[in-house]
Write a protein that binds this DNA or RNA. Structure first.
Length: 989
RNA sequence: GCCCCCGUAGCCCAAUCGGCAGAGGCAGCCGGCUUAAACCCGGCCCAGUCCGGGUUCGAGUCCCGGCGGGGGCACCA
């Protein structure tokens, strides 16, 4: 580094006359390294399992309530940590240490998410194997994290690339592959729908108790060929292969899940264009779980923001599907007459107002269109084309040529064309034109809508552009507001259903005028169902999860393909399937805009690996291995389970059921709810719909199959804020090294004499504002660093890093140190005298406050209370042991090394890690007198010192006698007196 | 366009059920210590809570409408 780092600026380092035993960065470092070694030697943070060989420190059995803490899995990038990364890790460490002192059996460990693109990309650049790169990065992370003094159980760490871990990732994949979703099966805990074994499906099909999916009713299972049977079963699996439109990113060389594509049609990683392309890929049937993934959010303690993002993403919407008859043109033949188009609508109550219909350009109805424009076709509808066939072909071509980005940019602009088809509104009997337009998406609902311009903004915009009639069927009380134009989408009363002037032959006997929206919906659905025209339906935005990637650095699929090109599971005994060596592990990437390219899996480059002879029960046969790898998310879908049982190898279950029940089962401790799961999961909000959705899905499959007992993996989720930083740019807009900038908010900022502009944003190399934990350890020590991060503000709020402010935390620890240890002699200086009542009150007040703040996960305010107590003790002539010992214990979760050191110097040979957290004695929490505020008309006019137990009547009498109050009342009669004894009296005159 | 969160001292942030606007830290100022400076110690200064209404005896806190900042979703029928 060419710039002077923070270490060089530390004041403590340059003075030769500093007291010999001051708590300097050098001393802090010595203490910290010593205690880190001791903790490791003693196994201080070993969490005790109720069975097996993982015991507590010194072989101890579990005691207290189990409490499972989880951090979002770090991905060890080559850049190492900056000070923003560990915020959550420190927070969970503080909670873990606090709970440990409260007597809980705390499980807290950290592993590494190590497959994935960054390591692979780095490896491609440097020519090193991704495993080498990844393992080196993990070592750097381990060192940086250990230096922070995190109370992790080191026996439970692992990385997703460990063969022993990959084995189980693949094993879980096989469980999912071996399952199907029975939507009607009743779950043990209640509710319908659960995963079952594929063998059970086969048995039911063979027994004829279940219709064969995809075949006409009454099809005999036994009449199907073996391959036909396999195809049926394969099509029902929760992990399946099919050919359908997927997201293909040529510039990245792989296909992606919907969740990995941004709203403007680019890859979240790398920002490459993404194209929709029909490809044969692995998918996971997450849509089968859409309802449970939505409903079970009720059972867990998560930020409302994340819950709503998940609900949003799943996008459940309730409505009805309605079938419209399509009629040909007048001279059309009978063949087209019977056709129907099904639409999905959330507003069946507005069906009387459906004046036209729109289908997506890809809709199969458009494969044949009438030969000529029907009577009544308007000029504006045809797009200037002579025939419907021409018009539709032109629009379909134009629409197909649009990229997702263009389609996005055109949103709002309504384009489309009449298809020549007419459909019949089943309620009014009126023929209505069928349009095609790209504002209707083939991928949602049925790809067709009934357009109600009177009740939908998009339909209104289209109707306006194409001169189509608007019928309002819902109006607010008192009719549309003066001057209102557009669709009425709000609540209201149903009208025009049927219209008063519908004539003497009503097309239907449904009459919903006067009903509210909800009742009108229900009545319409009932009417449609009774006549077989439609039914109540639920649709989802969620799509099945695209699970295969054409990448090297991921878990291989435990699947081979047989000579019929059908997938076959690798037997569990043959797991894990290791990654082969390949001549080149770089992905095959293409011009980012080359839509016609196709993915090519790097694993396919090793023919010896791909082609394999196996005996899978019917003699040795030749198979072809699946050459895809799993997405990065696979490893993080179940890592929390691995902490419970980190060395589990060959077994029938991924985690010992006894351990699962103990650590994660429903109600496994007093705070755990019926859903069970991890007690505290801390991480950033960025995984709201990726990792957190996928992991919940896998967990629910494992639950259905009986491998875990909790309904949800993460009972409580907490999103920490981000630590951001100031950056500075010179007159040309170039970032200058932030550490060298001088000045402040009022005087302005300069760098090397020139004025620079400050901005606020992420910490990163390009902004030259990175501060690393290593710099902080060097300049202040880990305890000060931890304390500063925790005192910056509430955990869930983002805030700016300010190295300049760190000194405040350091001063606190120095004062604490001085209250116990003489800076000159190094002797312990506490007195064994009984503390004064005033001191005891200060101590117990602090204990009560700190306990409340810690329990509420507010370390910033807990620290403020600790500083207050410490400052009070500083003011005493001598510090009583009985006062400072509780303080040291309370500081321990936040600044554990210095607390351990002081605790030892105070004469305690054992670590304080499991020492009981101090408990406040209620007798020192009551005051002799309290200050009562007396207000007149809500303004403070006087104060009274009164006993806390004073009665309302006495207090009122005293208040009305107070001279300033009497003066303020100015002789006016008292109208009312509000008494909140003993703190407040308010006199109203 | 729709939804969510946040605006308190120069800066980062507290404030229980609606009850005295200040816990803590940074910066600043004054003093002590020091040959001097830094460190350290003691003390001080600093906002009426983004703006406008409303409810209430009483509003930073609740309600309505704006403004500013951050985030999510976005042609999802």
């Amino acid at each position: 580094m060419t710039t002077p780092d923070a270490a060089a600026q530390t004041p403590a380092a340059d003075s030769s006359r500093e007291p010999a035993f001051r708590y300097t960065p050098a001393l802090a470092q010595e203490i910290e390294l010593r205690w880190q070694d001791r903790w490791e030697e003693r196994g201080t943070f070993h969490a005790a399992n109720p069975s097996g060989d993982l015991t507590g420190p010194g072989g101890a059995a579990p005691s207290g309530d189990p409490y499972f803490i989880l951090d979002m899995f770090p991905y060890p990038s080559g850049a190492g940590l900056h000070v923003g990364h560990p915020l959550g890790y420190i927070a969970t460490d503080v909670v873990g240490r606090y709970r440990m002192m409260q007597g809980d059996n705390v499980l807290h460990a950290m592993g590494f998410d190590a497959f994935g693109l960054p390591a692979e990309q780095y490896a491609v650049q440097t020519g090193e194997h991704p495993r080498v790169v990844t393992e080196r990065n993990i070592e750097i992370y381990r060192r940086q994290l250990r230096r922070m003094g995190l109370a992790h159980d080191q026996r439970r760490t692992f990385a997703t690339i460990d063969p022993g871990y990959v084995r189980w990732t693949q094993w879980i994949f096989l469980q999912i592959f071996d399952s199907w979703y029975d939507a009607d099966a009743v779950r043990p805990g209640g509710g319908k729908g659960r995963a079952r074994r594929i063998a059970e499906l086969r048995d039911e099909l063979a027994a004829g108790t279940r219709p064969v999916p995809g075949y006409p009713a009454g099809t005999d299972w036994a009449a199907l060929s073996v391959t036909e049977q396999r195809d049926v079963l394969d099509s029902q699996r929760l992990a399946y292969v099919d050919e359908s439109p997927v997201n293909w990113a040529p510039g990245l060389g792989t296909v992606l899940a919907n969740e990995e594509v941004t709203a403007d049609g680019r890859s979240e990683r790398g920002n490459f264009p993404v194209f929709t392309k029909a490809l044969r890929q692995w998918k996971m049937r997450i849509t089968a779980y859409a309802d449970r993934l939505t409903d079970d959010l009720e059972l867990i303690d998560w930020p409302e923001k994340v819950k709503s993002m998940q609900r949003n993403w799943i996008g459940r919407s309730t409505g009805a599907s309605v079938r419209f008859d399509v009629i040909g043109t007048s001279d059309d033949d009978a063949a087209g007459a019977g056709e129907q188009v099904e639409v999905f609508t959330t507003r069946p109550d507005t069906l009387f107002g459906a004046t036209f219909m729109v289908v997506a350009p890809e809709h199969p109805l458009l494969d044949e269109v009438p030969a000529a424009w029907p009577d009544g076709t308007r000029e504006a509808w045809t797009g200037g084309h002579a025939t419907p066939a021409e018009a539709v072909a032109a629009y379909r071509a134009a629409s197909a040529a649009k990229t997702a980005v263009e389609r996005q940019a055109d949103a709002g602009k309504k384009t489309g064309v009449f298809t020549g088809h007419l459909a019949v509104n089943p309620l009014t009997g009126t023929p209505i034109p069928v349009f095609t337009a790209d504002y209707v998406l083939m991928g949602y609902g049925t790809g067709a809508i009934m357009a109600v311009p009177g009740g939908d903004d998009r339909d209104f915009a289209f109707a306006t552009a194409f001169e189509l009639p608007v019928i309002y069927t819902v109006l607010p009380d008192g009719g549309l507001p003066e001057g209102f134009e557009g669709a009425w989408t709000g609540d209201g009363v149903t009208v025009n259903s049927p219209a008063a002037d519908a004539g003497d032959i009503p097309a239907s006997d449904l009459a919903i005028n006067g009903l509210g929206v909800a009742e009108a919906k229900a009545a319409t659905i009932a009417w449609l169902e009774a006549r077989g025209i439609g039914e109540g339906t639920i649709t989802y935005r969620l799509r099945d999860w695209l699970f295969s990637r054409q990448r090297y650095w991921g878990e291989p699929f435990p699947i081979v393909w047989d000579e019929q090109d059908r997938p076959v599971a690798i037997p569990e005994s043959a797991l894990p399937v290791d990654l082969p060596d390949v001549p080149d592990y770089a992905p095959r990437t293409f011009d980012p805009n080359d839509q016609d390219s196709s993915p090519e899996a790097p694993l396919g480059r090793n023919d010896d690996w791909v082609s394999v002879t196996l005996d899978l029960g019917d003699g040795p046969k030749q198979y072809r291995r699946d050459t895809n790898t799993m997405p990065n998310w696979a490893g993080s879908c179940w890592y929390y389970l691995r902490y419970l049982d980190p060395s589990r190898a060959d077994a029938d279950t991924v985690v010992d059921p006894a351990l699962d029940a103990y650590w994660m089962g429903p109600n496994h401790n007093p705070e755990s709810g019926v859903a069970g799961g991890v007690d505290l999961y801390v991480g950033g909000v960025e995984h709201a719909v990726l990792h957190l959705l996928y992991a919940r899905f896998w967990h629910k499959v494992l639950f259905d199959l009986g491998f875990v007992s909790s309904v949800e993996p993460f009972g409580k989720l907490f999103n920490q804020g981000y630590i951001q930083a100031y950056a500075y740019r010179d007159a040309h807009g170039f970032p200058v090294p932030a550490a060298e900038v001088e000045g402040n908010e009022t005087s302005g900022y300069t760098w090397q004499g020139q004025s620079v502009a400050r901005e606020y944003g992420k910490m990163g190399k390009s902004l030259k504002n990175v501060v690393t934990p290593d710099e902080m350890y060097e300049a202040y020590g880990a305890d000060t660093f931890r304390l500063y991060e925790m005192s910056m503000g509430p955990l869930d709020v983002s805030r700016p890093w300010n190295t300049r402010d760190v000194v405040g935390s350091q001063r606190f620890l120095q004062r604490l140190w001085r209250n116990v240890v003489s800076e000159d002699t190094g002797e312990t200086v506490v007195s064994d005298e009984v503390p004064s009542t005033e001191t005891l009150r200060a101590v117990h007040r602090a204990i009560a406050d700190v306990t409340a703040e810690m329990a509420g996960m507010r370390p910033n305010t807990a620290i403020a209370k600790l500083i207050t107590l410490n400052n009070y003790l500083t003011s005493l002539d001598s510090v009583p042991r009985a006062a400072v010992e509780p303080l040291v214990l309370m500081v321990a979760p936040l600044a554990p090394h210095v607390a351990e050191e002081l605790w030892e110097r105070l004469g305690h040979p054992e670590s304080l890690a499991r020492e009981p957290f101090p408990v406040a004695d209620p007798q020192y929490l009551v005051e002799d007198t309290v200050t009562c505020v007396v207000q007149v008309q809500g303004k403070v006019r006087g104060r009274l010192e009164v006993p806390p137990s004073i009665s309302d009547a006495d207090l009122q009498a005293a208040a009305l006698a107070e001279p300033n109050v009497v003066k303020a009342m100015d002789g006016k009669p008292v109208r009312k007196v509000i008494v909140r004894a003993p703190r407040l009296v308010n006199v109203v005159v």
